[in-house]
Nucleic acid binder design. Structure first.
Lengths: 198, 198
DNA sequence: TACTTTACTGGAACAACGTTCTACACCAGG
DNA sequence: CCTGGTGTAGAACGTTGTTCCAGTAAAGTA
C-alpha cells in the first residue's frame, strides 16, 4: 500500500499525506465532525479530492489518521505526568486528560463518539487507544509499587480510573454536568478515586 | 403544533407519529445510526418520506423523538431500583443502568455520542436526560439520609456516580474494556464508588 | 538524455442522502 | 354537491462519498 520501495515511479509524496491530515484537523476544529467532508478537506489542503483516495483509500482512512493523531496527543498528555510523588503523578495525569479533552473537544468526541455506532473501529485505532491506556497503567503501577494505591492488578485499577475520568469528561463535553463548578466536581472525582482505590 | 383541536380539517393522525418513531427505533436497532435515514424510516413505516417532515419538521426532530424515548427508558431503568436497603438500591440502580445500555447499545450511543459534535442538543433532550439524572439523585439522597453515603450534596455525589457509570458503559460499548471480565470490572467500579463516597 | 512508471489533477458521473416543491387525495363544514 | 385546509405520493434540487477517465508532471532507470 504505502510501499515506497516499489520499482520506479514517483516518491509517494508523504508531504501531501501530512498536508491532508493537517487540513482535516483544521476543518474538524473549525466546522466540527459534520463539516469534515472529503471535498472540504481537499479544498482546505488545496488539493484535488482524489488525493484523499490515493493516500487514504476512503474518507474513513482519512479520519482514522486524524483520530490516530488525537490518540497520540491523549497518550502524550497522559504520559506527561512525571511527578515524583505517586499521588501527584496520578492527579496530574487526570488533570492533563481533562485538559486535552477540553482543548480538543471535536477530536475527543470523534475519538470516543463516532467509533460506536458505525465507523472506524480500526485495529490501529484500538492499538493507539491501548497505548494511551498503557501510559495510565504505568502510572497506576508506579503508585501501587509505592503503596499509594491498593495492591491490585494495575490494569484493573487503571480501567476503573479510565472509566470514571472518561465519563466525567464526556458528560462535561456533552453539557450534562449539573453541578455549579465542573472543575471542582472533577477534582472531587479524582479525590474520590484516590479514596476508593487506596 | 400538535394541537388537534384546530378548527376544521382532518384529525392530525397522532397514530402516524407513533408509527414513525416505532419504525425509526426498529431501523436504528437493525441498521445502526448510519442506516437511520428518512427514506428508510418512511419505508419501514409504509409512509411517504414527507410524513417525517410534516410530523417532526426534519430528521433531527425524528431522531430527537427516538432519543427522548431512549432517555425515558434509561430513567425508567434507573428509577426501577426500589430496594429497601440504600446500598442495595444504589447497586441495583447501577446494574440497571448498565443493563439498559447493553440491551440498547444503538440508543445509548446515539443518546450520548451524537449530541456532542453536531446535532440534536435539543432543550427537551437535556431535560429528559435531567429526569433520568434526577432518579439517580433521589437514590443518592435516600442513601445519604440513611448514612450509607457521606453527607454531601446529593447532586454532586450523583454527578460523580453518573460520570463513572457512564464512562464504564461507554468504554464497554466501544470495546475499550481491557480487563478479562467486564461484568466483574463493573461490579468492582460500583464497589469502589461505595467505598470512595462513604 | 530519454523512457517508463507512477502520483496527481481536473472534471464528469453515479447512488444515496436531507430537504423542498408540486400535484393529487381525503375529510369536515356549508 | 362543493370548498378549504390537511396530508400524501412522488418528482426534483443540492450535497455527500465514491468511481472513472483522460491528461500532466515528476521521479527513477537505462
Amino acid at each position: 500500500m504505502t510501499d515506497v520501495s516499489a520499482s520506479g515511479g514517483r516518491t509517494p509524496s508523504r508531504a501531501l499525506e501530512q498536508a491532508l491530515v493537517d487540513a482535516a484537523e483544521r476543518v474538524l476544529v473549525r466546522d466540527g465532525l459534520g463539516g469534515l467532508t472529503v471535498r472540504a478537506v481537499a479544498a482546505e489542503a488545496a488539493v484535488a479530492p482524489m488525493g484523499v483516495y490515493n493516500r487514504f483509500g476512503n474518507k474513513d482512512g482519512l479520519v482514522a489518521a486524524v483520530l490516530a493523531r488525537g490518540f497520540e496527543g491523549l497518550r502524550a498528555a497522559t504520559a506527561a505526568a512525571e511527578d515524583a510523588d505517586p499521588v501527584d503523578r496520578l492527579l496530574t495525569c487526570g488533570r492533563n486528560y481533562r485538559r486535552f479533552a477540553l482543548d480538543h473537544p471535536q477530536h475527543y468526541g470523534a475519538m470516543f463518539g463516532a467509533g460506536w455506532a458505525a465507523a472506524v473501529p480500526t485495529e490501529e485505532l484500538v492499538d493507539r487507544a491501548g497505548a494511551a491506556f498503557q501510559a495510565l497503567v504505568d502510572r497506576v503501577g508506579y503508585a501501587v509499587d509505592r503503596g499509594a494505591l491498593r495492591p491490585a492488578d494495575p490494569v484493573d485499577t487503571a480501567q476503573l480510573i479510565w472509566s470514571s475520568v472518561h465519563g466525567a469528561v464526556s458528560l462535561e463535553l456533552a453539557g450534562l454536568v449539573k453541578t455549579a463548578d465542573p472543575a471542582a466536581t472533577y477534582e472531587a472525582l479524582l479525590q474520590m478515586l484516590l479514596d476508593g482505590l487506596r
